[in-house]
Protein backbone atom coordinates (compact mmCIF):
# COMPACT_ATOMS: atom_id res chain seq x y z
CA UNK A 1 0.00 0.00 0.00
CA UNK A 2 1.41 3.32 -1.05
CA UNK A 3 1.15 5.31 2.17
CA UNK A 4 1.95 8.68 0.64
CA UNK A 5 -0.65 8.24 -2.03
CA UNK A 6 -3.37 7.32 0.44
CA UNK A 7 -2.47 10.12 2.85
CA UNK A 8 -2.41 12.77 0.15
CA UNK A 9 -5.83 11.58 -1.00
CA UNK A 10 -7.09 11.85 2.58
CA UNK A 11 -5.71 15.37 3.00
CA UNK A 12 -7.15 16.47 -0.34
CA UNK A 13 -10.52 14.99 0.57
CA UNK A 14 -10.67 16.76 3.91
CA UNK A 15 -9.62 20.08 2.37
CA UNK A 16 -12.09 19.81 -0.44
CA UNK A 17 -15.12 19.70 1.81
CA UNK A 18 -13.77 21.89 4.56
CA UNK A 19 -17.15 23.05 5.88
CA UNK A 20 -18.51 19.52 6.00
CA UNK A 21 -15.32 18.34 7.65
CA UNK A 22 -15.60 21.00 10.34
CA UNK A 23 -19.26 20.16 10.94
CA UNK A 24 -18.37 16.49 11.10
CA UNK A 25 -15.58 17.12 13.62
CA UNK A 26 -17.68 19.41 15.81
CA UNK A 27 -20.71 17.15 16.06
CA UNK A 28 -18.51 14.15 16.67
CA UNK A 29 -16.62 16.13 19.30
CA UNK A 30 -19.77 17.24 21.12
CA UNK A 31 -21.22 13.78 21.04
CA UNK A 32 -18.05 12.20 22.36
CA UNK A 33 -17.69 14.94 24.98
CA UNK A 34 -21.17 14.21 26.29
CA UNK A 35 -20.42 10.52 26.23
CA UNK A 36 -17.29 11.19 28.28
CA UNK A 37 -19.25 13.32 30.72
CA UNK A 38 -21.74 10.50 31.11
CA UNK A 39 -18.93 8.07 31.84
CA UNK A 40 -17.38 10.47 34.37
CA UNK A 41 -20.72 10.92 36.14
CA UNK A 42 -21.09 7.14 36.24
CA UNK A 43 -17.63 6.90 37.81
CA UNK A 44 -18.53 9.60 40.28
CA UNK A 45 -21.74 7.84 41.26
CA UNK A 46 -19.73 4.73 41.97
CA UNK A 47 -17.31 6.69 44.15
CA UNK A 48 -20.15 8.44 45.98
CA UNK A 49 -21.84 5.17 46.78
CA UNK A 50 -18.67 4.07 48.46
CA UNK A 51 -18.43 7.29 50.39
CA UNK A 52 -22.02 7.31 51.63
CA UNK A 53 -23.58 3.90 51.72
CA UNK A 54 -20.86 2.35 53.82
CA UNK A 55 -21.16 4.89 56.57
CA UNK A 56 -24.66 5.33 57.83
CA UNK A 57 -27.88 3.68 57.02
CA UNK A 58 -30.25 4.86 59.73
CA UNK A 59 -29.98 7.92 61.95
CA UNK A 60 -31.94 8.19 65.19
CA UNK A 61 -32.13 11.86 66.18
CA UNK A 62 -32.81 12.64 69.80
CA UNK A 63 -34.92 15.41 71.25
CA UNK A 64 -33.31 18.38 72.98
CA UNK A 65 -34.79 17.32 76.31
CA UNK A 66 -33.77 13.68 76.15
CA UNK A 67 -32.84 12.29 79.55
CA UNK A 68 -29.79 10.20 80.33
CA UNK A 69 -31.81 7.03 81.08
CA UNK A 70 -33.68 7.41 77.80
CA UNK A 71 -30.39 7.72 75.93
CA UNK A 72 -28.92 4.73 77.73
CA UNK A 73 -32.06 2.70 76.97
CA UNK A 74 -31.73 3.39 73.26
CA UNK A 75 -28.04 2.48 73.32
CA UNK A 76 -28.84 -0.74 75.15
CA UNK A 77 -31.61 -1.59 72.68
CA UNK A 78 -29.27 -1.03 69.76
CA UNK A 79 -26.60 -3.09 71.48
CA UNK A 80 -29.01 -5.98 71.92
CA UNK A 81 -30.67 -5.83 68.52
CA UNK A 82 -29.74 -8.60 66.06
CA UNK A 83 -30.52 -6.19 63.22
CA UNK A 84 -27.72 -3.82 64.18
CA UNK A 85 -24.20 -4.44 63.10
CA UNK A 86 -22.69 -1.32 64.53
CA UNK A 87 -23.67 2.06 65.87
CA UNK A 88 -22.04 5.26 67.04
CA UNK A 89 -23.32 7.97 69.27
CA UNK A 90 -22.84 11.55 68.17
CA UNK A 91 -23.26 14.33 70.73
CA UNK A 92 -24.37 17.87 69.92
CA UNK A 93 -20.75 19.00 70.10
CA UNK A 94 -19.59 16.25 67.76
CA UNK A 95 -22.41 16.99 65.34
CA UNK A 96 -21.42 20.63 65.30
CA UNK A 97 -17.79 19.74 64.73
CA UNK A 98 -18.69 17.54 61.77
CA UNK A 99 -20.90 20.31 60.45
CA UNK A 100 -18.13 22.90 60.63
CA UNK A 101 -15.82 20.48 58.86
CA UNK A 102 -18.30 19.79 56.11
CA UNK A 103 -19.01 23.43 55.46
CA UNK A 104 -15.60 24.92 56.16
CA UNK A 105 -15.74 26.69 52.81
CA UNK A 106 -18.89 28.53 53.87
CA UNK A 107 -17.95 30.42 57.05
CA UNK A 108 -21.14 32.48 56.90
CA UNK A 109 -23.25 29.38 57.26
CA UNK A 110 -21.18 28.24 60.20
CA UNK A 111 -21.34 31.64 61.85
CA UNK A 112 -25.12 31.63 61.62
CA UNK A 113 -25.49 28.20 63.16
CA UNK A 114 -25.60 28.11 66.97
CA UNK A 115 -23.40 25.44 68.45
CA UNK A 116 -26.32 23.58 69.97
CA UNK A 117 -28.58 23.73 66.89
CA UNK A 118 -27.72 20.26 65.70
CA UNK A 119 -29.38 17.35 67.47
CA UNK A 120 -27.51 14.52 69.10
CA UNK A 121 -28.02 11.21 67.36
CA UNK A 122 -27.28 7.54 67.04
CA UNK A 123 -25.84 6.53 63.69
CA UNK A 124 -26.75 2.95 63.04
CA UNK A 125 -25.30 0.50 60.55
CA UNK A 126 -27.69 -2.35 59.84
CA UNK A 127 -26.88 -5.95 59.11
CA UNK A 128 -29.28 -5.66 56.20
CA UNK A 129 -29.76 -2.07 54.99
CA UNK A 130 -33.24 -2.94 53.70
CA UNK A 131 -34.50 -3.55 57.23
CA UNK A 132 -34.99 0.10 58.07
CA UNK A 133 -38.65 -0.45 58.96
CA UNK A 134 -37.76 -2.70 61.89
CA UNK A 135 -35.62 0.00 63.49
CA UNK A 136 -38.26 2.62 62.85
CA UNK A 137 -40.85 0.46 64.65
CA UNK A 138 -38.56 -0.22 67.54
CA UNK A 139 -38.00 3.48 68.17
CA UNK A 140 -41.34 5.25 67.59
CA UNK A 141 -40.96 8.90 66.81
CA UNK A 142 -41.91 11.26 69.65
CA UNK A 143 -41.49 8.68 72.40
CA UNK A 144 -38.61 8.01 74.76
CA UNK A 145 -36.66 11.04 73.56
CA UNK A 146 -36.66 10.05 69.87
CA UNK A 147 -37.14 13.11 67.69
CA UNK A 148 -36.90 11.41 64.34
CA UNK A 149 -35.75 8.20 62.70
CA UNK A 150 -34.41 8.77 59.26
CA UNK A 151 -33.54 6.22 56.64
CA UNK A 152 -30.42 7.77 55.16
CA UNK A 153 -30.46 5.08 52.53
CA UNK A 154 -33.78 6.40 51.34
CA UNK A 155 -32.35 9.89 51.01
CA UNK A 156 -29.29 8.49 49.24
CA UNK A 157 -31.47 6.47 46.93
CA UNK A 158 -33.23 9.65 45.89
CA UNK A 159 -29.91 11.47 45.47
CA UNK A 160 -28.51 8.65 43.39
CA UNK A 161 -31.59 8.32 41.26
CA UNK A 162 -31.18 12.04 40.54
CA UNK A 163 -27.54 11.51 39.59
CA UNK A 164 -28.41 8.43 37.54
CA UNK A 165 -31.02 10.51 35.78
CA UNK A 166 -28.43 13.16 35.00
CA UNK A 167 -26.09 10.49 33.67
CA UNK A 168 -28.81 8.92 31.54
CA UNK A 169 -29.92 12.28 30.18
CA UNK A 170 -26.33 13.11 29.27
CA UNK A 171 -25.89 9.80 27.52
CA UNK A 172 -29.25 10.18 25.76
CA UNK A 173 -28.20 13.57 24.39
CA UNK A 174 -24.87 12.03 23.43
CA UNK A 175 -26.67 9.29 21.51
CA UNK A 176 -28.86 11.77 19.64
CA UNK A 177 -25.81 13.86 18.86
CA UNK A 178 -23.94 10.74 17.78
CA UNK A 179 -26.77 9.94 15.38
CA UNK A 180 -26.51 13.43 13.91
CA UNK A 181 -22.79 13.06 13.55
CA UNK A 182 -23.13 9.64 11.90
CA UNK A 183 -25.53 11.11 9.36
CA UNK A 184 -23.14 13.99 8.75
CA UNK A 185 -20.27 11.58 8.27
CA UNK A 186 -22.34 9.54 5.85
CA UNK A 187 -23.34 12.66 3.96
CA UNK A 188 -19.85 14.03 3.73
CA UNK A 189 -18.46 10.69 2.57
CA UNK A 190 -21.06 10.67 -0.19
CA UNK A 191 -20.01 14.20 -1.11
CA UNK A 192 -16.35 13.26 -1.04
CA UNK A 193 -17.02 10.22 -3.21
CA UNK A 194 -18.97 12.38 -5.64
CA UNK A 195 -16.16 14.93 -5.77
CA UNK A 196 -13.65 12.23 -6.46
CA UNK A 197 -15.77 10.21 -8.86
CA UNK A 198 -13.34 10.76 -11.74
CA UNK A 199 -10.48 9.31 -9.74
CA UNK A 200 -12.50 6.43 -8.35
CA UNK A 201 -13.95 5.59 -11.77
CA UNK A 202 -10.48 5.36 -13.21
CA UNK A 203 -9.28 3.37 -10.23
CA UNK A 204 -12.13 0.94 -10.74
CA UNK A 205 -11.37 0.54 -14.44
CA UNK A 206 -7.63 0.01 -14.06
CA UNK A 207 -8.28 -2.62 -11.41
CA UNK A 208 -7.44 -0.92 -8.15
CA UNK A 209 -8.62 -3.13 -5.29
CA UNK A 210 -11.74 -2.13 -3.43
CA UNK A 211 -9.68 -1.50 -0.34
CA UNK A 212 -7.35 0.84 -2.16
CA UNK A 213 -10.29 2.83 -3.44
CA UNK A 214 -12.17 2.91 -0.15
CA UNK A 215 -9.37 3.37 2.31
CA UNK A 216 -8.86 7.12 1.72
CA UNK A 217 -12.54 7.75 2.44
CA UNK A 218 -12.55 5.61 5.56
CA UNK A 219 -9.35 7.20 6.83
CA UNK A 220 -10.85 10.59 6.14
CA UNK A 221 -13.79 9.78 8.41
CA UNK A 222 -11.55 8.11 10.98
CA UNK A 223 -9.30 11.16 11.12
CA UNK A 224 -12.30 13.43 11.62
CA UNK A 225 -13.47 11.08 14.38
CA UNK A 226 -10.05 11.21 16.01
CA UNK A 227 -9.91 15.01 15.90
CA UNK A 228 -13.46 15.07 17.31
CA UNK A 229 -12.31 12.78 20.12
CA UNK A 230 -9.36 15.10 20.75
CA UNK A 231 -11.77 18.03 21.08
CA UNK A 232 -13.98 16.02 23.41
CA UNK A 233 -11.06 15.08 25.67
CA UNK A 234 -9.87 18.68 25.63
CA UNK A 235 -13.38 19.74 26.62
CA UNK A 236 -13.39 17.33 29.55
CA UNK A 237 -9.98 18.58 30.72
CA UNK A 238 -11.20 22.17 30.54
CA UNK A 239 -14.38 21.25 32.41
CA UNK A 240 -12.31 19.68 35.16
CA UNK A 241 -9.87 22.57 35.46
CA UNK A 242 -12.31 25.46 35.06
CA UNK A 243 -15.51 24.10 36.60
CA UNK A 244 -15.13 21.00 38.74
CA UNK A 245 -11.85 21.97 40.42
CA UNK A 246 -12.87 25.58 41.03
CA UNK A 247 -16.60 25.79 41.58
CA UNK A 248 -16.94 22.46 43.33
CA UNK A 249 -13.71 22.75 45.34
CA UNK A 250 -15.57 23.15 48.68
CA UNK A 251 -17.86 20.14 48.56
CA UNK A 252 -15.01 18.05 47.19
CA UNK A 253 -12.71 18.97 50.05
CA UNK A 254 -15.47 18.29 52.52
CA UNK A 255 -15.86 14.82 51.05
CA UNK A 256 -19.45 15.41 49.92
CA UNK A 257 -18.59 15.00 46.25
CA UNK A 258 -15.75 12.82 45.08
CA UNK A 259 -13.12 14.67 43.02
CA UNK A 260 -12.77 14.07 39.27
CA UNK A 261 -9.31 12.56 39.09
CA UNK A 262 -6.95 12.93 36.17
CA UNK A 263 -6.75 9.18 36.23
CA UNK A 264 -10.49 8.97 35.51
CA UNK A 265 -10.10 11.25 32.49
CA UNK A 266 -7.05 9.29 31.40
CA UNK A 267 -9.04 6.09 31.72
CA UNK A 268 -11.95 7.23 29.56
CA UNK A 269 -9.84 9.05 26.93
CA UNK A 270 -8.92 5.89 25.03
CA UNK A 271 -12.58 4.84 25.12
CA UNK A 272 -13.61 8.17 23.63
CA UNK A 273 -10.91 8.02 20.98
CA UNK A 274 -11.77 4.44 20.07
CA UNK A 275 -15.48 5.28 19.92
CA UNK A 276 -14.79 8.30 17.69
CA UNK A 277 -12.53 6.48 15.27
CA UNK A 278 -14.60 3.31 15.31
CA UNK A 279 -18.01 4.93 14.75
CA UNK A 280 -16.72 7.23 12.02
CA UNK A 281 -14.98 4.39 10.18
CA UNK A 282 -17.96 2.11 10.39
CA UNK A 283 -20.29 4.89 9.21
CA UNK A 284 -17.98 5.60 6.28
CA UNK A 285 -17.65 1.94 5.36
CA UNK A 286 -21.38 1.33 5.49
CA UNK A 287 -22.02 4.46 3.42
CA UNK A 288 -19.54 3.33 0.77
CA UNK A 289 -21.15 -0.10 0.67
CA UNK A 290 -24.70 1.17 0.45
CA UNK A 291 -24.61 4.34 -1.56
CA UNK A 292 -21.38 4.63 -3.46
CA UNK A 293 -20.34 2.56 -6.40
CA UNK A 294 -16.61 2.11 -6.25
Amino acid sequence: MRVNFVLSEVAAGLRRNLTMTVAMILTTGISLGLMGTGLLIANMIGDMREIYYDKVQVSIYLTDDVSDPQRDAIAAALEGSPEVRNYIYESKAEAYERFTQQFQEQPALIANTPEDALPESFRVELVNPERYEVIAQEFPVGENGVEDVRDEGDFLDRLFSLLNGARNATIAVAVVQALASLLLISNSIQLAAFNRRNETNIMRLVGASRWYTQLPFILEAALAGLIGAGLAIGGLVLTKVLFVDKTLAGPIKAGIIPPVDWSAIAAISPIIAAAGVGLASVAAYVTLRLYVRL
Binding site: R204, L205, V206, G207, A208, S209, R210
Partner: peptide, 14 residues
Protein backbone atom coordinates in the same frame (compact mmCIF):
# COMPACT_ATOMS: atom_id res chain seq x y z
CA UNK B 1 -16.05 -13.50 -7.07
CA UNK B 2 -16.17 -9.77 -6.41
CA UNK B 3 -12.65 -9.49 -5.11
CA UNK B 4 -11.24 -11.04 -8.28
CA UNK B 5 -12.77 -8.33 -10.47
CA UNK B 6 -9.88 -5.86 -9.98
CA UNK B 7 -7.48 -8.59 -11.12
CA UNK B 8 -9.55 -9.08 -14.27
CA UNK B 9 -9.54 -5.37 -15.01
CA UNK B 10 -5.77 -5.21 -14.67
CA UNK B 11 -5.62 -7.33 -17.79
CA UNK B 12 -7.83 -4.87 -19.70
CA UNK B 13 -7.34 -1.28 -20.80
CA UNK B 14 -10.15 1.18 -21.48
Amino acid sequence: SKWQVPKLRRTMGC
